[in-house]
């Protein structure tokens, strides 16, 4: 992980403030919206600092090609993709090795939450587009994906809530920015949990860390993930407690009646 950053930069100053003025355990501003797309079965849009991710969910639906189907459970298919304009240098549109690996770890993290055993022979798809990237896109993507699965009405043990913690300038901090990831001693630890049981469903790390630092980082991650969890729940509540959502359900009911007639 160790970046090319200047060793003279003070990543956390004497008053405990970071480069962008945050405290060590403070997250960037996060906004979660669910039900943002019309055609998808479920959808969510997340802004996390400068990161922007949109997720669409389909399913459970037929597995194609058929030989991929599992007779005991639904298979999760996750597609994490970056828009060519989401990064400083124009990115070629075809998915690279990084996007393929991230798709795999996200898929496994979500699989742990979804009650896949209820839908044998089927697949649940999650498509995520990163429209703006500024360190922490996989967790932004996962936050959106998990909320979109809930919006699609897919039964889950819990939402998946994640955060990236790590180290810069010798201090353990939450939610690293690009500038902090570039520190010469930077460590990045994306982590996600099922908050109600605290089970870890995603964990990656690159960089050098002592045991003590890990303990701090681990504790920090759990606390921070809890905040993300609350934002996800709030967004879902906002969507389904509002009058509009109720009206829509009624509309669907009416359409069904018409079909019966």
């Amino acid at each position: 992980m160790a970046g090319k950053g200047n060793e003279n930069v003070t990543y956390v100053d004497k008053s405990g403030k970071r480069l962008d003025g945050r405290k060590v355990d403070e997250l960037r501003p996060i906004k979660v919206d669910v039900g943002v797309l019309d055609r998808a079965d479920g959808s969510a849009y997340v802004e996390w600092g400068h990161n922007k991710a949109i997720a669409a969910v389909y399913g459970p639906r037929e597995v194609l090609p058929k030989h991929m189907a599992n007779p005991y459970k639904a298979i999760m298919r996750v597609y994490y993709r970056m828009a060519p304009f989401s990064v400083p240098e124009h990115k070629r549109p075809a998915p690279g090795r990084r996007e393929i690996e991230i798709s795999k770890v996200l898929s496994e993290a979500l699989d742990a939450a979804v009650l896949t055993e209820r839908f044998p022979q089927s697949q649940i798809e999650v498509h995520i587009d990163i429209l703006d990237a500024d360190a922490g896109t996989r967790i932004t993507a996962l936050t959106a994906a998990s909320a979109a699965l809930a919006d699609a009405g897919i039964p889950m043990r819990d939402l998946v809530a994640g955060v990236s913690v790590g180290k810069a300038g010798g201090r353990v901090i939450a939610d690293l920015t690009k500038a902090e990831e570039d520190a010469s001693d930077a460590v990045d630890i994306p982590m996600a949990i099922l908050p109600s049981t605290k089970e870890v469903v995603l964990l990656q790390m690159d960089g050098i860390l002592t045991k003590e630092e890990w303990k701090d980082a681990h504790e920090l991650a759990h606390k921070a993930a809890e905040k993300v969890y609350n934002l996800q729940k709030e967004a879902l509540r906002k969507r389904y407690e509002s009058a509009e959502a109720v009206e829509e359900t009624e509309e669907i009911a009416e359409t069904k009646e018409e079909v019966v007639e």
Binding site: R39, I54, A56, P84, E125, H127
Partner: peptide, 18 residues
């Protein structure tokens, strides 16, 4: 100019190269 019609937009769009 490049356009992506990914499954985000529609249940009938497929992932993969354009």
């Amino acid at each position: 100019v490049n356009a992506e019609m990914s499954p985000i937009a529609s249940p009938s769009f497929e992932s993969g190269p354009p």
